[in-house]
Computed example of a mutant assay.
Amino acid sequence: MNQTPDHRAGSVAVIGRPNVGKSTLTNALVGAKISIVSSRPQTTRHRLLGIATFPQGQIVLVDTPGLHRQQGKFSASAMSRVMNRAARGALEGVDVGLLVIEAGRWDEEDTLAYNVLSDAGIPVVLVVNKVDRLREKSALLPFLAEITQNREFAAVHPISALKRNGLDGLVKDLLRQLPQAPAMFGEDEITDRSERFLAGELIREQLMRQLGAELPYATTVEIEHFTEDGAMLRIGAVIWVERESQKAIVIGKGGARLKDIGSKARQQMERLFDRKIFLETWVRVREGWSDDETALKAFGYE
């Protein structure tokens, strides 16, 4: 790729409270699905890079778990502490902070996220996501005026990440904030994570989508084997739960739920990896894994 003298490149931390659309925005800017998405808060558990390359520059997006206050049963768990550390750690060495909020809503967790970015001493770009869901469109301007009062933002962008509306202006402003530098990654690279990691995440996405209400945080995925067989990838994955009763829920009647989870995850993998996938899944029990820092480390949580 020929780079202009004014070519810009740098890293942007995507920060916000849970479920505001950070991963949807990351995927939209990258142009590929690298971050899993569901309607459940805290779907994103890991920090990962999304690499968005444009003729004018390269934006390395650091997608993070949602920042949340330490209260309630989940917030007191080891997983909650790990996720908050991952979100705060994403600010180390970045050039810009991207604060993502939901149109029409600003609460204490949004203030927490803003304060974390403000304390980092970097330019903060505000993204007001889900504007397409606002019933009263006339309420947007007063809302923007209210939340930007006494807060410093380098730019403000109302967008819909899901519908990809408003992204062009956002990209221009992000690039403007980045230093003049050559690209940090190759033009065809979209993430720093391996296919093995992404395979596990795509299975966990189906668990969150299908069982998020029943087992919101009690499941995780471990890839046991990941081998190439000619043009095919053979993947074996273990779904870990915390109790025998949860194992039965994941498997479903006659194995139907587990089969559906595997089938939909396999289709997503084939789309992302552009090759045939042979996927096997098993469900095993490890009591209290989500509140055990040793277990979390073994399962790849930072």
Rank of each mutant, 00 (worst) to 15 (best):
A213M: 13
R88V: 15
S11M: 14
R257P: 03
L48T: 07
Q246T: 01
T111H: 08
V94A: 08
A154M: 06
L215A: 06
G212L: 08
G200H: 03
V12F: 10
I235L: 08
G10D: 02
Y114A: 02
G66I: 04
M232R: 08
P65A: 00
D107M: 10
Q267M: 13
V30P: 07
A139R: 11
E195H: 12
V20S: 01
F54Q: 10
Y114G: 07
T53V: 00
T220S: 06
R40T: 08
K33F: 07
A78S: 15
P123T: 02
E146K: 14
L99T: 00
G89F: 05
W289K: 02
E152F: 07
T4L: 14
V100T: 03
A28F: 03
Y217P: 09
V37A: 12
S138E: 14
V12D: 04
V285C: 10
V82A: 14
D119H: 10
R69N: 10
E244N: 09
H7A: 06
Q58M: 09
E201W: 02
K130P: 01
G50A: 11
V20D: 02
W106E: 01
G121T: 04
I249N: 05
Q180S: 08
E244I: 02
I159V: 15
D119L: 09
E242L: 00
A161Y: 00
L134Q: 07
T24L: 02
E222Y: 11
A298P: 00
V96A: 08
L49E: 06
D132G: 03
V127G: 00
R85D: 12
V124R: 03
Q58W: 09
E293W: 04
A295D: 05
N27R: 00
A145D: 11
R284D: 08
E214S: 13
Q71C: 09
A155Y: 06
P216M: 11
D6T: 13
F226P: 05
L272S: 11
V30Y: 06
V171S: 02
S75K: 11
R196P: 04
L279C: 06
V60D: 06
R257Y: 07
K247S: 13
W282H: 12
V156S: 05
K172R: 13
A28C: 09
R133K: 14
E102T: 15
A237E: 07
V171D: 02
G186F: 12
I277V: 15
K33Y: 05
G262Q: 06
R17A: 04
N129W: 01
L91D: 05
K297L: 11
G252I: 04
P55C: 12
E244D: 15
T64H: 11
H157A: 05
W282R: 10
L207F: 12
R257Q: 14
P65M: 04
E293Q: 12
E224Y: 04
H46E: 01
A139Q: 08
A145P: 00
I203V: 15
D168W: 04
G104H: 03
S23I: 08
E109G: 02
P158Y: 07
D192G: 13
N19Y: 05
Q42F: 11
P179F: 01
G288D: 08
V250W: 03
S11D: 07
D95L: 07
L202W: 10
S38Y: 03
M269K: 09
Y301F: 15
V238C: 13
L258D: 03
M269F: 13
W240S: 03
R8E: 00
P5C: 03
W289R: 02
D260V: 10
G300M: 09
S290Y: 14
A76E: 14
Q210N: 12
